[in-house]
Amino acid sequence: MLQKAIKKKEIESELQKALVQNPRIITIKAALRDDFEITSRVLSELISMGYKGVLLSAFKSATEFMQQIKDRGIHWADNIMVIDAISVSYGVAEKGVTNINGVDFVEGPFSLDDIYKCATEAINNIKSEKKFLFVDSVMAFLLYNEEKRITDFLSKLMNLGEKMDGLSVLITQPESAYVIPVEKIKTLNPSIEFSIAD
């Protein structure tokens, strides 16, 4: 595993360098306050590099990400499918009723089986040689689930990355009072771990 401490301003360039090696799993550690910005920047960079993929979001809603990416001048289109695990629980969307192109709403961050099912379907439907599966974030999922459930859930996602050609799995791990140390997740063997500082 390559552990790399980088500055915030270097995210795009370091991500470009890393993706050349076709890494299976990338973990991104950053301060909680930077999570939204960093996730948006990474997504924007992935789209710019021709990647298509799935975002599992449990901290910010799909519409917030869409707006953020749009503000960066990046064309969202059909490059990203979002599994939004927050909008229904926040009362801004209704499962099975709210219809936004490119977004699947699940009931809440606790609906891990639903999230996994939607994610695998979505990733299988993407026709691209360069795919990504982005989990934002470990901490957000942990707030609503027992540690063991999250460990299993992440392990299953990692396996997808191992099995599927051309798929990179990205996971953000905001630094907070409580996150699972990466080593604790059995099958998680990140190719690269970025620790982002100011």
Binding site: F36, S89, G91, G108, P109, F110, S111, N145, S176
Partner: peptide, 20 residues
């Protein structure tokens, strides 16, 4: 807004919290 973004003030629905 930064307090919300940083989860310094975190909003949670009890029903979601005790899932299912």
């Amino acid at each position: 807004q930064s307090a919300v973004d940083e989860a310094g003030v975190y909003f949670s629905d009890l029903e979601i919290l005790v899932k299912g």
